[in-house]
Amino acid sequence: MADSNTGSVYRSASWLSAARAALVFVLLCGGLYPFLVTTVGGMLFPHQATGSLIVIDDDIVGSELVGQRFKAAKYFHGRPSAADYDPFSVGGSNYAASNPDLRARVAEDARDIADREGVEVESVPVDLLAASGSGIDPHISPESAQLQAMRVATARDIPVSNVNDLIAQYTEGPTMGIFGQPRVNVLRINLALDGKEFLD
């Protein structure tokens, strides 16, 4: 579509060029680029490529990157989840600090946790009461793990020092001492409690 007064100067701005460019860019940016990265990335990092799955005796028991719901006393429990730990409906609570529903939920959870662990509500770490952003946060803070150690040890009838040793072993610090927060992967430490080897 050439402008009448300037002839061929604007030929590149034609609809045909636009349509051809759109098709070429779809194939290049939406086809070739993701295909190459996915192929190369999949070859270089096969374990990560399929979701960092934990395979034990040929069974897939979970993903290192996806938290699970735990209720039994013999396991460490994870954070509250607005998605009920369903990875297809991931999400946070999106409660504002001023939303009374948030305070009601926190109050109820705090009472439950305090009763279960035999402590005062004021000593329940925040992360154990705050719903994560993803709804599948696989981690809790080391303090939240320590809070649960006695209950886990009692349920398993093992010395609490064994459980504490395991917490120390499974606590990941900040990368290079700088990036990120100290944390414990709940599924991995629970697998260790069950005596299941963790294999990549």
Binding site: T38, A49, G51, L65, Q68
Partner: peptide
Amino acid sequence: ASQGVPNSYEGARTITPLDQTAEMNEQNI
């Protein structure tokens, strides 16, 4: 990709969660 972001054209994976008492029979990733 090295850190764990998936890279695959295969579909979701189904797993059986560890805690059988947590009323979650399967988890699709």
